[in-house]
Deep mutational scan, measured.
Amino acid sequence: HIECVVCGDKSSGKHYGQFTCEGCKSFFKRSVRRNLTYTCRANRNCPIDQHHRNQCQYCRLKKCLKVGMRREAVQRG
């Protein structure tokens, strides 16, 4: 199976330009649609994997963008 490029979980297909799991797909869509801004409580390099992906939204969104998920691919409302 193909892994989610963000957290390594099982990918459910290509979403917003990259293969991601449902969790990262939904997180990215929600973040972009609502134009959410997050803050990192650590050093902005938190581990984002299957077990830690919900611990830091700032670093999760940063990783989504770093691996090539595209904001412009998210349809507005």
Rank of each mutant, 00 (worst) to 15 (best):
S31Y: 07
G8P: 03
A42G: 15
H52M: 10
Q50I: 14
S11R: 04
M69A: 00
V74K: 05
K63I: 04
Q50W: 09
Q55C: 11
C59T: 02
D49V: 07
H52L: 07
C64Q: 01
S26H: 07
R60K: 11
R60H: 12
R60S: 03
R41Q: 12
D49N: 11
R30H: 04
S26A: 06
T20V: 14
R41H: 12
Y58G: 07
C24W: 02
G23E: 06
R44D: 13
R76E: 14
S31W: 06
A42F: 05
N43T: 09
E22H: 03
F19L: 07
S11E: 05
R71G: 09
F28N: 01
A73E: 12
G17R: 04
V74W: 05
N54V: 10
Q57I: 13
N35G: 11
Q57R: 06
M69G: 02
S11Y: 15
I48V: 14
Q57A: 10
K66A: 11
K29S: 09
E22S: 09
D49Y: 05
G77W: 06
Q57N: 14
E3D: 11
L36A: 09
Y58M: 05
Q50A: 13
F19C: 06
H1M: 15
T20C: 14
Y58C: 08
L65W: 07
I2D: 13
K63C: 07
R53D: 12
K14P: 15
T39A: 15
G23I: 02
E72W: 05
Q18P: 13
K66I: 09
C64F: 00
K66G: 08
R60C: 11
C7Y: 05
A73N: 13
Y16G: 07
E3R: 04
C56Y: 02
K25Q: 12
K63E: 07
K29L: 06
Y58T: 01
V74F: 07
K29T: 12
Q57P: 10
A73I: 06
K62V: 13
S26E: 14
G17H: 04
R60Q: 15
R71A: 11
V5Q: 15
R76L: 12
E22R: 03
E72N: 06
Q75H: 15
G77F: 05
H15N: 14
S31R: 00
A42Q: 15
Q18E: 14
K62T: 12
S12N: 11
N45L: 05
T20F: 08
D9K: 08
Y58Q: 06
L65F: 10
Y16M: 07
C24G: 00
E22V: 09
T37L: 09
G13I: 06
N54C: 05
V6N: 00
N35T: 04
C46Y: 01
R60P: 02
T20G: 06
T20N: 06
K25I: 12
Q55H: 11
C4L: 00
P47I: 07
R76C: 13
G23L: 03
F27T: 00
V5F: 15
N45E: 10
K29A: 09
K25C: 13
Q50M: 08
G23W: 15
N43W: 11
R70L: 13
N43Y: 04
R33P: 01
C4P: 01
N54K: 08
G13Q: 13
E72H: 03
G8E: 12
C40P: 00
R44K: 09
E22A: 11
C4R: 03
G13S: 06
A42L: 11
L61F: 09
H15R: 04
V6S: 01
D9L: 06
K62D: 12
F28P: 00
C40T: 03
Q18D: 13
R53P: 14
A42V: 13
A73M: 09
R76M: 10
R70Y: 05
Y58N: 03
G23C: 11
H51D: 10
Q75R: 07
R41D: 13
V32T: 14
Y58A: 11
Y16L: 07
K66M: 12
Q57S: 09
V5C: 10
V6R: 00
S11P: 15
C21P: 00
F27L: 01
Y16P: 04
Q75N: 08
N35L: 03
K29C: 02
H52E: 13
G13N: 09
R71Y: 13
F27A: 01
Q18A: 13
L65I: 12
D49K: 04
D9G: 09
I48A: 04
V32A: 07
G77V: 10
G13L: 04
C64Y: 03
S26N: 05
C21W: 00
R60E: 03
A73H: 12
G23A: 07
C4Y: 00
A42D: 11
N35W: 04
H51V: 09
A73L: 10
D9V: 05
R33M: 10
L65G: 04
N35V: 08
I2Y: 15
G13F: 06
N43K: 12
N54Q: 08
Q57G: 13
K29Y: 03
Q50S: 08
Y58D: 10
C7S: 01
R70C: 09
C56N: 04
F27I: 01
V67W: 05
Y38W: 02
G17Q: 12
Q75G: 13
L36Q: 08
R53E: 11
V5T: 14
R71Q: 12
R60Y: 11
R70K: 14
C64K: 00
K62W: 07
K10A: 05
K66N: 12
R41K: 15
R70D: 14
R34Q: 12
C4M: 03
C56A: 03
C59D: 02
K66F: 11
C46F: 03
I48Q: 07
C21H: 01
S31I: 11
N43S: 11
V32K: 07
N35D: 15
R44C: 07
C46R: 02
R53N: 10
V32H: 15
C46P: 03
V67E: 11
C46I: 05
V6E: 01
C21I: 00
G8L: 12
K10H: 05
C24S: 00
D49F: 11
R76Y: 12
E72K: 04
G68C: 03
R30I: 04
C4V: 02
C24P: 02
V74C: 10
K66P: 01
K66Q: 12
Q18C: 15
R34V: 07
F27G: 01
E3I: 08
E22L: 08
E22G: 13
K10N: 14
S26F: 05
Q50D: 12
F19A: 08
R53H: 06
C46G: 02
N35S: 03
D49E: 09
R60D: 03
C21K: 01
